[in-house]
Design a protein around this nucleic acid. Structure first.
Lengths: 168, 168
DNA sequence: TTAACCTTTCAATAATTATTGAAAGTTTTG
DNA sequence: CAAAACTTTCAATAATTATTGAAAGGTTAA
């Protein structure tokens, strides 16, 4: 298989997988493209390679920067900006986990805290069941947060990585 | 606050949070409703409570059953079916993780395996970079899988839960 | 200062995904 | 068997989300 063909396959497939990750196809494609080009690409190069509009590339590259998966770089003597993917897979994993925590867990936490603070009136048993539910869900959220933190630890500590694998 | 008000707030909010979890609003609302009713509800009761069409309720309840978050039950002497949520939060967490693993990780694994098996022709350095990328991403996927397994372990073992919390 | 070059914004449009509701299907009951 | 009670399906429609591209905004170079 030609390398170009492999890369292209990767980019296309990564794009469609993006949707199951809650990420837009364009964003995932651009990410895949940049991951496969160690030296970074300019907006126009990205547009050409993945066949997307300038606005789309601009938006999604900035979103990738928000996720800390891509950084902007300027080359001496060049006017335009180049975008370079973070290539270390542990950092990628960590940034994705952190962003997902922020987007998925924090809003839940906020809701649960609000409801846990309320004083309810009504049928005693029903109230109790509802409050148990809230408290259980809180535990769940905490557990997910712990797991995220644990992943950070794993990344920075190879010994711990082996420990985890061993007990898993 | 009236209990009914709290529940309703919970159901509405859970619904909008659903989208950040990659779950449709209706599915999340129905799930929240069933979580707050220990004895289960019938299709018509769900329709009434969350104001959704029969078709929508049917589809999403069945999706919740696929996720193993809800089970169907028939009551002696009643013709209709009742839907009961899984109320144990550890099992809920585990089923969600497993479903997400299946949806999010497995397709990536398939793609990576396919590409890793290919023999590429082209610039040597570029090929090497691309293959390193593939292999790194494989490691990432494995790590996520290990984390999922770890969570299962945590759930079945309270001592391990404390261990994780301690080292996190 | 102005032209060239590049980035950003955003209203319009397209694509995707969710929802409805009526019709068809299924099972139970009399 | 037919009617009643319920569930499932699915084409049509609505709602949401992604994408375009042209115009506006910046910045640098001549």
């Amino acid at each position: 298989m030609k390398l170009e063909e492999g890369r292209s396959k990767f980019i296309q497939a990564w794009g469609s997988l993006g949707s199951s990750w809650g990420i837009s196809k364009s964003m995932a494609q651009i990410h895949a493209l940049l991951l496969s080009h160690p030296d970074g690409l300019s907006t126009d190069e990205i547009m050409k390679e993945v066949q997307l509009s300038r606005g789309n590339v601009n938006t999604n590259v900035r979103e990738l920067i928000n996720w800390r998966l891509v950084r902007k770089e300027t080359v001496l003597g060049e006017r335009k900006e180049f975008f370079i993917a973070l290539h270390d897979v542990h950092s990628i994993a960590q940034n994705i986990m952190e962003e997902r925590k922020r987007r998925e867990l924090e809003p839940v936490r906020r809701l649960l805290n609000e409801l846990k603070a309320a004083k309810f009136e009504g049928n005693k048993e029903e109230i109790e069941h509802f409050q148990t539910l809230l408290s259980d869900l809180s535990d769940f959220v905490s557990q997910m947060e712990n797991l995220t933190n644990l992943m950070t630890k794993i990344n920075s500590n190879n010994y711990m990585k082996k420990l985890i694998k061993a007990i898993s």
